[in-house]
Design a protein around this nucleic acid. Structure first.
Lengths: 166, 166
DNA sequence: AGCATCCGATTGCATTATGCAACCGGTTGA
DNA sequence: TCAACCGGTTGCATAATGCAATCGGATGCT
């Protein structure tokens, strides 16, 4: 009863989980940038999230069933954040967000390449990408071809540039 | 220079406009519920937005180019809020949000009928709906068949019930 | 062993956003 | 004349966000 949902409308309920300025940024970085550790999410994101906000978001997203937290065998203190199946199913939503932003907002060309690829690839590309995410985050059998690598290329280039520029 | 965008990423820029708990609720009500006046948006929405928040959101959405404000000829004081073309192009995004919420959140059956119709109708239905919105909000020539009426039916039923129940 | 670096956070504090209720001057229609 | 409605605004409390410094523990290098 601590629910207190504003309404049962699907759009509203989605907004109650994801309707803030950081949740989808975190999911985007895990999903498209393959940021799996706290420090990666903290230091290697374009927008510069604060550490307390990041911690709060990770906690909330885990409570909402969108992320799980696992141990990194290589380091006792290191945590690995994984996407859950519901989070992986946000791919079409994020693609639409990217497509809309690309058309109607002053995007930078570098960072919109990924959105363009996903938009032009259509649902079949999204499915391939989601299959890769399941392999990476849920331990599902790995698909043959990697579309993820292509998607991450531009992203990595920009992140690296930003890091040196600091 | 008062821009100060966090980054040029399309997803981020979309989030900077729509990433809060109310903006998309307002657009949803105008779009699917055909709420065109301030008082309609205030009193006839499921979630019960506060009047100052509504005023602030309408102002921001107009500044972002998603809404325009027109005069209602029938009443000197009455304002009519219209969707712009960019706002109408949010249809696929809202459909994806509804589809995701329907699958992964505790939606009420009544309110998810609309989401289901739009999801099952696919892109061709979205296009038909968007054409109707253009007629309604931009003064474009009206299409023949109205899919909007069907979409609003369930919504109106619930809103009417809620009004009497207060 | 010693020490710098990295690990996922937490704390304190300032600013901003949101939420709630009451209220405003003007318009409309009976 | 008057109640109801019009699009908001105001004041105030609470919650979210932003920023910088810091924490205790783990790791790796020398």
């Amino acid at each position: 009863m601590a629910d207190a949902h504003r309404s049962g409308c699907p759009i509203n309920l989605t907004l109650e989980v994801l309707g803030d300025r950081w949740s989808l940024i975190v999911i985007r970085d895990i999903m498209f940038g393959n940021r799996r550790h706290f420090r990666e999410l903290l230091n290697r994101s374009e927008e510069g999230i604060a550490s307390n906000i990041l911690a709060a978001r990770l906690k909330r997203l885990m409570a909402a069933g969108l992320l799980t937290r696992g141990d990194d065998p290589s380091h006792q203190q290191k945590a690995i954040y994984n996407l859950t199946e519901p989070a992986i199913q946000l791919v079409p939503l994020l693609v639409q967000m990217g497509a809309w932003g690309r058309r109607h907002r002053p995007v930078s060309e570098e960072l919109s390449i990924r959105a363009q690829l996903l938009e032009e690839g259509g649902p079949s590309l999204w499915d391939a990408f989601m299959a890769e995410l399941r392999a990476l985050h849920l331990g599902a059998p790995a698909p043959k071809r990697s579309v993820l690598h292509d998607l991450q290329a531009a992203y990595e280039k920009v992140a690296a540039h930003r890091k040196t520029a600091r």
